Amino acid sequence: MTVQPQKRRPPTERHRTERHRTERDRSGGEHAPPPGWAIAGTGSYLPGRPVASDELSRSLGLDPSWIEGRTGIRHRHVAGDGQAASDLAAAAARRALDDAGLDPGDLGLIVLGTSTPDELGPSTACRVQALLEARHAAAFDVAAACTGFVYGLQAAVGWLCTQRGSSPYALVIGVEVYSRFLNSGDRATAALFGDGAAAAVIGPAPRPYGIGPVTLGSDGTRAGDVLIPAGGSRAPASLDTLAGLGHTIHMDARAARDFITGILPRLVAEASAAAGIKPADLALVVPHQPNPRLVASLAGEAGLEPGQLAIAGQDVGNIGAASLPYALDAALRTRGVQAGELVLLAGFGAGLTWGHTLITWPPA
């Protein structure tokens, strides 16, 4: 069944005390060492009713078991009329803030990853800032497709490390409303994508806990593997782009599969080697999961046991930049993570882009 996170930590004074202490430390008080940065709370939101894969398979003229058998996806959610990316993002953000015991006014920064913004400009993060009434927060988007959450983490941690006199809390969101950009007759994309949002609050943590170095990469020579070709400055909207379905997702399915098959084991190996550990030492590996069955099948090649992978895509499909943080949120609420355990986030997507970071999980 679909994971709809309900369990929330009650607000406490711990996070507010940390905020005041960190503000003092960053101003030079008592010459304290700089803090680490960790995930203080998570939340997610799925819109509308779930659309079952057997229902979608029939609409594509396929055997009812075709989609689930090849992808593991049982259902996905579709945003309702009038629901934009910012609406989903704000709902997930409120849950993450509640989980962290914070208010929107405690935020200094909002970073949002998406490929399906409310509009080409302004940034959807600014729409979310207004919806949350997070008046003290700067806000901007990152465009790194399904790796957007990991790229957003790097932006947030970098900002937190360099700001002076600002709040030591940042919000990182991944959100997609892919249903508005699908060709309903294209089984390669219609079978995979869904709508959803997930968010994480980043705040101070005592050393050695927290988010480790974030490693990012790109290969722009393969930007054509997955893209929405029309609607930008290269191919502005026109009658021809509309007739040619240029505003829908186009994907080279074989190229995408080959990329996934190679990149996940590579990210696990690189992160483990950089930290001087073995993949078996990881308590949890949270990957992007455009095809959850394929991703789960790569555990052995990555040196992992199946139980180390946090797989939640069967409940939501590919929700792009929200996929990884949704799986993290679901894992935290269903299996939990203990203080000191190692959690690897491994993102990859169109661009091509990829990134990983190893988190030493902080005490609750």
Rank of each mutant, 00 (worst) to 15 (best):
residue 204 P to H: 01
residue 204 P to S: 02
residue 205 A to G: 02
residue 207 R to A: 11
residue 207 R to Q: 10
residue 210 G to V: 01
residue 210 G to Y: 01
residue 211 I to K: 01
residue 211 I to R: 01
residue 213 P to T: 07
residue 213 P to F: 01
residue 214 V to S: 00
residue 215 T to V: 14
residue 215 T to K: 02
residue 216 L to G: 00
residue 216 L to H: 00
residue 217 G to F: 02
residue 218 S to K: 02
residue 219 D to A: 11
residue 220 G to R: 02
residue 221 T to G: 15
residue 221 T to K: 14
residue 222 R to G: 15
residue 222 R to V: 04
residue 222 R to I: 03
residue 223 A to C: 09
residue 225 D to E: 14
residue 225 D to P: 01
residue 227 L to P: 02
residue 227 L to M: 11
residue 227 L to K: 08
residue 228 I to C: 03
residue 229 P to E: 07
residue 229 P to C: 06
residue 229 P to A: 05
residue 232 G to V: 15
residue 232 G to T: 14
residue 234 R to S: 11
residue 236 P to K: 13
residue 237 A to T: 15
residue 237 A to F: 13
residue 240 D to Y: 08
residue 241 T to D: 07
residue 241 T to K: 07
residue 242 L to Y: 15
residue 243 A to V: 07
residue 245 L to I: 10
residue 247 H to L: 13
residue 247 H to M: 14
residue 247 H to N: 12
residue 247 H to S: 13
residue 248 T to P: 06
residue 248 T to N: 13
residue 248 T to F: 15
residue 249 I to V: 15
residue 251 M to R: 04
residue 252 D to T: 03
residue 252 D to S: 05
residue 255 A to S: 13
residue 256 A to N: 12
residue 257 R to C: 06
residue 259 F to L: 07
residue 260 I to K: 00
residue 261 T to Q: 13
residue 262 G to N: 06
residue 262 G to P: 00
residue 263 I to D: 01
residue 263 I to Y: 01
residue 263 I to C: 02
residue 264 L to E: 00
residue 265 P to E: 04
residue 265 P to H: 03
residue 265 P to W: 03
residue 265 P to Y: 03
residue 265 P to Q: 04
residue 265 P to M: 05
residue 266 R to N: 04
residue 268 V to N: 00
residue 269 A to L: 11
residue 269 A to M: 11
residue 269 A to C: 11
residue 270 E to K: 04
residue 270 E to Q: 10
residue 271 A to K: 00
residue 272 S to G: 04
residue 273 A to H: 08
residue 273 A to M: 06
residue 273 A to N: 07
residue 274 A to L: 11
residue 275 A to I: 09
residue 276 G to Q: 12
residue 277 I to T: 15
residue 277 I to W: 09
residue 279 P to F: 10
residue 279 P to S: 10
residue 279 P to E: 10
residue 280 A to Q: 12
residue 281 D to A: 15
residue 281 D to I: 13
residue 281 D to M: 14
residue 282 L to I: 12
residue 282 L to H: 08
residue 282 L to M: 08
residue 283 A to S: 11
residue 284 L to K: 03
residue 284 L to H: 04
residue 287 P to N: 08
residue 288 H to Y: 02
residue 292 P to F: 10
residue 292 P to D: 07
residue 294 L to V: 08
residue 294 L to S: 05
